[in-house]
């Protein structure tokens, strides 16, 4: 299934690997920060509701 890249294996796998790793990191950071802020905002709103 894996195509044969010959002498360009490092070029192709290196560039695709770096791309996919950076995109995965960006998506992960986006989702993690989104969830963290959402949780913190909910907790703050709950606290302010309880405290009046």
């Amino acid at each position: 299934m894996m195509p044969e890249f010959g002498k360009y294996t490092v070029t192709i796998l290196g560039s695709w690997g770096a791309t996919l790793a950076l995109l995965a990191g960006l998506i992960l950071v986006t989702l993690m920060r989104g969830a963290k802020v959402k949780r913190a905002l909910k907790a703050q709103e709950e606290r302010m509701k309880t405290d009046g």
Binding site: E4, Y8, S15, W16
Partner: peptide
């Protein structure tokens, strides 16, 4: 050669 495959990410 096979390096053309880099264009799909670059």
């Amino acid at each position: 050669g096979a390096t053309v495959k880099v264009i799909y990410v670059h």
